[in-house]
């Protein structure tokens, strides 16, 4: 009985790894997408939306699979709920990335070149926060003691994102642009910033799960 479990466990371990890879890859693609948009390479930008959609679907599939197997074979009974909660919330990070890119594609905001660097920096910091989150979750499965080391990075990048976004919004509203464009540009700062906020939420959960998981 338990020897079957061990095989199942191996399959599951691979699936969880793949899920985390997917989250990590999607955050890199997200940053790429923003860069392409700012560079005016709209065709390539649209391509990234397609890629991120595929990743989102794959992540959903994996999550459902992992979920049903954890329950079917009643694995890790003690922290099953925590693990599932974590995975579900990580999914929201990908969703936020996709949603943000889609907003760009639908509304095609006109971004003056002087703000490009700030938008790019914001996307970069958000990517970093998602990446650090993925590393922290990996540590939760593999190397329990390291979770804290990665968690604080997630918080750091989230604060950075806040700062950059705040600076960007102030600059936008101090400019001579139309109010309508100012508001439009602000929304896009918010959309990108949203990603690091989601990452922070997951980090909070992970922190609590780590305290709970004391063998």
């Amino acid at each position: 009985m338990s020897f079957i479990h061990s095989k199942k466990s191996k399959v599951l371990e691979t699936q969880i790894d793949e899920f985390l890879d997917t989250v990590s890859r999607s955050s890199i693609i997200f940053k790429n997408g923003i860069k392409k948009y700012l560079d005016g390479e709209i065709d390539l930008f649209e391509g990234t939306i397609g890629e991120i959609s595929k990743l989102e679907n794959r992540a959903d599939e994996l999550r459902h699979d992992i979920e049903s197997q954890l329950y079917m074979y009643s694995l890790i009974p003690e922290i099953r709920g925590d693990v599932l909660g974590l995975l579900e919330n990580m999914d929201t990070v990908i969703n936020a990335e996709k949603k943000s890119l889609t907003q760009f594609s639908v509304e095609m905001p006109v971004i003056p070149a002087e703000y490009d660097a700030d938008y790019l920096a914001l996307a970069d910091v958000c990517m970093n926060s998602a990446e650090s989150l993925v590393t922290a979750v990996r540590a939760f499965f593999h190397d329990f003691n390291m979770v804290k080391n990665y968690l604080h990075k997630v918080y750091f990048y989230e604060k950075e994102a806040d700062k950059i976004s705040d600076r960007l919004k102030r600059r936008i509203f101090a400019s001579e642009l139309d109010l309508s464009q100012k508001i439009h540009l602000r929304y896009f700062a918010l959309h990108i910033e949203d990603i690091s906020d989601h990452a922070e939420d997951v980090a909070d959960r992970l922190g609590i799960s780590t305290i709970k998981r004391n063998f």
């Binding site: 061990s6 499965f141 593999h142």
Partner: peptide, 17 residues
């Protein structure tokens, strides 16, 4: 266990066995 880097699920399967 805190020092070893056993995967959560592997540990689960060992403990169960």
């Amino acid at each position: 266990l805190k020092r070893s880097r056993i995967h959560l699920l592997t540990l689960d399967s060992y403990t169960r066995t």
